[in-house]
């Protein structure tokens, strides 16, 4: 079947099998490897991206379901060479070690701040509770999201 999915504002049309998962469409058909493919079982959350502005685990959604819809991936956070504060927060607070969980963490963190600009630590931890980091113990991920909450203005650091 042919699908057209708008990924970070750009329509991507591709002939796919209906069984193709959205995470694979984004990585293979749209060519954007920032979204990571992890556990395949909706447990780890590294594949989190937004569909119509709402975060989903893209290993548990068919690309066919996103036909005609808007997808935003981690590559869509940076605008015109300027990093989103959530990205800057992960730099400032050393929010990653291996970096595998990072794209999903940033997409969930950005969504949280869009809906709740000043979350408590408990609210941050609850929001990322469906995502697994095996390096950091979450402390610096929480700190990174808090940094972004405290620095909502667009970062001046270029990508």
């Amino acid at each position: 079947m042919e699908v057209t999915i708008t990924v970070n504002g750009t329509p991507v049309t591709s002939e796919i099998e209906p069984r193709k998962l959205l995470v694979h469409f984004v990585r293979e058909d749209a060519g954007l490897r920032g979204t990571h493919w992890g556990c395949d079982t909706s447990n780890c959350g590294t594949c989190v991206l937004w569909v119509d502005g709402s975060p989903v685990k893209s290993c548990t959604m068919l690309a066919a379901q996103a036909d005609g819809h808007e997808v935003t991936t981690v590559e869509g956070l940076e605008q015109g060479g300027v990093l989103d504060p959530i990205q800057q927060g992960f730099i400032e607070c050393h929010g990653l070690q291996c970096g595998f969980c990072t794209p999903g963490m940033m997409m969930t963190g950005r969504w949280l701040l869009d809906n709740n600009p000043n979350p408590s630590e408990a609210e941050i931890r609850d929001c990322i509770s469906g995502q697994i980091c095996r390096c950091t113990g979450y402390k610096n991920i929480v700190a990174s999201i808090q940094w972004a909450a405290e620095h909502p203005a667009t970062s001046e650091v270029t990508a």
Binding site: G45, S54, P55, V56, T60, M61, S129
Partner: peptide, 9 residues
């Protein structure tokens, strides 16, 4: 029930 991301679907 599940986690915030799964609850969206």
């Amino acid at each position: 029930i599940a986690d915030p991301i799964v609850r969206n679907k």
